[in-house]
C-alpha cells in the first residue's frame, strides 16, 4: 500500500513539472519584453530596467527557471507589485473564503447529486429521471454568475432573507458566516450537481447491465439490495473520478462566484491580480490551484483501492 502511494507520488512529479514550466513560460513567452508588460503602459525605462534586474530577466532562461523554481520550493513566492506584500502573506489572507466556499459546495453538491443520480438510474425513463436529466442539461447551460444574480435577486433583494454580498470570517461570527455562504455555495453547486448527478446516473446504469447484477437478481435479492449493495459500490470509482476532475470546475467557478458575491477569496484575488497585471501573484495562485487539483486527484486515485479490490497496490 505504501509502495502504491509512493508510486503515485512519483507519478505526479512530471505533471507538476510540466505545470511549473507552463506557468513559468507563460510570462516569458509574452510578445515583447516581460518587464515592460509587468511595468505597465506608463512606466519609465528606468522602472523597466529595475524590474528586469529584480526578476533576473538578464540571465539565461534556464537559470531564471532554476532560480524561480528554487525559490518556490523554498516557499518564497515573490512579492506582489500591486499589493506591496509577499505573495505568501496575500494568499494566507485570502484563502479562508475560498476554502469555505469550495468545501461547503462540495459537501452540499455531493450529498444532493449522488442520491439523485442513483434514483434517476434506478427509475430510468420515469418522470423523475427526465426531470433530473433536464435539470442537468440546464445546469450545464446557465453560467454560474447568472444563477448567482438570480438567487440574489430572489432571496436577497425581493425576499430579503439573506445578505446580498460580503463575507464574515468563520471565527468572527459563525451564524453570519453561514448566512453569507448559502447563496454562493448554491450558485457554485448548480453546475457541479448537474455534472455529478449525470455521471452517477450513467455509471449506475452501466453497472446495472453487468452480468453480476443478473446473478444478484437470480439469487432472489430485492431490487433495493441489488441497487445498494451491488450496483452502487461498483459505480463508485467512475463517480469518484468525476468528482475529482470536477474540482477544476469548482476552482474556476469560485473565481466567478467570489466576484458576484464580493467574497475576498483567492478567486477574487486572481481577478484583481490580472486587472493590475500583478504577475507573481497570478503565477503563484495558478500554481497553487494546480497543485491542489493534482493532489486531490492523487487522493481520489488512492481511494479507489477502498472500493475496488482489483486495483493493485
Amino acid at each position: 500500500m505504501l509502495d502504491f502511494i509512493a508510486r503515485r507520488l512519483v507519478a505526479i512529479i512530471p505533471v507538476l513539472t510540466v505545470v511549473a514550466v507552463l506557468v513559468f513560460l507563460m510570462l516569458r513567452l509574452t510578445p515583447g519584453d516581460p518587464a515592460a508588460v509587468i511595468a505597465g503602459d506608463n512606466a519609465t525605462s528606468d522602472q523597466i530596467n529595475d524590474i528586469r534586474e529584480k526578476l533576473g530577466l538578464n540571465e539565461p532562461i534556464w537559470t531564471q527557471f532554476a532560480i524561480w523554481i528554487g525559490d518556490i520550493l523554498q516557499g518564497n513566492f515573490g512579492e506582489s507589485f500591486f499589493f506591496k506584500k509577499t505573495v505568501a502573506e496575500l494568499i494566507a489572507q485570502r484563502i479562508e473564503p475560498t476554502l469555505a466556499l469550495t468545501i461547503c459546495t462540495l459537501i452540499f453538491a455531493v450529498a444532493i447529486s449522488v442520491p439523485i443520480g442513483v434514483m434517476a438510474a434506478y427509475r430510468q425513463g420515469s418522470i423523475f429521471d427526465r426531470i433530473v436529466m433536464a435539470f442537468a442539461v440546464l445546469g450545464f447551460s446557465v453560467p454560474g454568475f447568472v444563477i448567482g444574480y438570480c438567487l440574489i435577486y430572489v432571496f436577497a433583494i425581493e425576499l430579503g432573507w439573506l445578505p446580498v454580498q460580503g463575507y464574515v470570517r468563520i471565527g468572527v461570527n459563525f451564524w453570519q458566516f453561514l448566512e453569507r455562504m448559502v447563496l454562493p455555495s448554491l450558485t457554485l453547486s448548480v453546475g457541479f450537481i448537474a455534472l455529478i448527478s449525470r455521471i452517477t446516473r450513467a455509471s449506475v446504469l452501466e453497472v446495472l447491465n453487468e452480468d453480476y447484477i443478473r446473478t444478484a437478481r437470480a439469487k432472489g435479492l430485492s431490487n433495493r439490495v441489488v441497487l445498494m449493495r451491488h450496483a452502487l459500490r461498483n459505480a463508485a470509482v467512475p463517480i469518484l473520478t468525476v468528482i475529482g476532475l470536477g474540482i477544476a470546475i469548482l476552482m474556476g467557478g469560485a473565481v466567478v462566484t467570489e466576484s458576484v458575491f464580493g467574497l475576498p477569496g483567492l478567486g477574487r484575488l486572481t481577478v484583481e491580480a490580472v486587472l493590475s497585471r500583478d504577475f507573481p501573484t497570478i503565477q503563484t495562485v495558478i500554481l497553487m490551484f494546480s497543485v491542489v487539483y493534482v493532489v486531490i486527484n492523487l487522493l481520489v486515485d488512492i481511494s479507489y483501492t477502498i472500493f475496488d479490490p482489483r486495483i493493485r497496490y
Partner: peptide, 20 residues
C-alpha cells in the same frame, strides 16, 4: 429463486460481483 430454481451462467468471469 435460489430456493427452488437456480441458474448458472456462461461467463464466470463477469457473473460474480468483483468488489465482494
Amino acid at each position: 429463486r435460489c430456493t427452488r430454481m437456480s441458474m448458472i451462467f456462461q461467463e464466470p468471469m463477469t457473473a460474480l460481483n468483483p468488489v465482494m
